[in-house]
């Protein structure tokens, strides 16, 4: 037990938590709006990693600028995914949509393995670091936190200050009534799914600036996302950021007191505990 490591570890965990939160935001949005559990969440995050990497290596574009392209790419991909895999089964029992999104998961992994192989890739980004005593804060992590915050604020403003954003919340609340108001609910669902995928891919792009990755790398973030969705409240996107920070902090603290391999066990323990006590999540809206 190293108390000296407490501060650096907590800071590391906290900063990563912002990125975790961003990763989970898309998952919780999709679930909140259309009650669909997107099991393709992980592979989509990995696609975001590759997108930023390829834009960087093929076109020589700075990864942070590449993120903008990834935002657009994610939105388009999400809308396509909605119409291909989700639209027709959206009123079917939840198991059907689970299977539909899971099959997309398998397709992305399968195709991705063939195209990219599982050779690890990495983006070489050095933005210096801020050091004091035992604490080192990498520049890339700071930028990642700032971008995560910016995206969260952007999402919040969109959902609460724009008409389209409010119509998304309306559809999430009561789809039939929204239809009666003249809102094209199918369009709204497609857009929401698109935004969810966009958020996941963007978080992937950010993660790629921090760690090496393969097409399988999204899996671990998908699992963390489920825990965060439950922590932050099902369907509550800004709650996801809070949930992510909590999880990151939890990870940072846990690694000090026990072998690092135990961290996932602790996380899932928390996940199950919260589901038992408050099924709608700690900050659950519903």
């Amino acid at each position: 037990m190293n108390i000296d490591a407490l501060v650096p570890s907590s800071i590391d965990g906290l900063m990563l938590g912002f990125v975790y939160g961003l990763a989970a935001m898309g998952l919780t949005l999709i679930f909140g709006v259309m009650r669909v559990i997107n099991l393709a969440h992980g592979p989509v995050i990995a696609l975001g990693m590759f997108a930023v990497y390829l834009i960087g290596t093929q076109f020589g574009v700075n990864p942070y600028l590449g993120l903008i392209a990834v935002l657009v790419l994610g939105l388009v991909l999400g809308i396509v995914m909605y119409f291909v895999a989700v639209h027709r089964v959206i009123n079917a029992p939840e198991l059907t949509t689970l299977l539909a999104t899971f099959s997309v998961n398998l397709m992305i992994i399968g195709l991705g393995t063939v195209v990219f192989t599982t050779t690890p890739r990495a983006i070489d980004m050095d933005l210096g670091a801020f050091r004091t005593g035992a604490i080192t804060i990498l520049g890339t992590k700071v930028v990642a936190v700032l971008i995560a915050i910016a995206v969260t604020v952007g999402l919040y403003l969109f959902l609460y200050r724009t008409r389209v954003g409010k119509s998304i919340r309306a559809v999430a609340n009561n789809r039939a009534a929204a239809e009666l108001m003249g809102i094209n609910t199918t369009g709204v669902l497609a857009l929401s799914f698109g935004i969810g995928i966009m958020l996941a891919m963007t978080s992937g792009g950010l993660i790629a600036t921090l760690f090496s990755f393969t097409i399988l790398a999204g899996g671990v973030y998908e699992l963390k996302s489920f825990v965060i969705v439950v922590l932050g409240g099902l369907g509550n996107p800004t709650g996801a950021l809070v949930g992510g920070i909590v999880l990151g902090l939890l990870e940072g603290l846990t690694t000090i007191f026990m072998p690092v391999g135990w961290v996932p066990i602790i996380e899932y323990g928390v996940f199950v505990l919260i589901l038992l006590i408050r099924p709608t999540g700690l900050f659950g809206a519903r």
Partner: peptide, 21 residues
């Protein structure tokens, strides 16, 4: 004397543990 998962890409937790002693 600690092990890490094969898929680990972030060694920050270990480095934080290594530094204090």
């Amino acid at each position: 004397f600690e092990g890490y998962d094969t898929a680990t890409t972030d060694f920050a937790p270990f480095i934080n543990k290594i530094m204090p002693p």
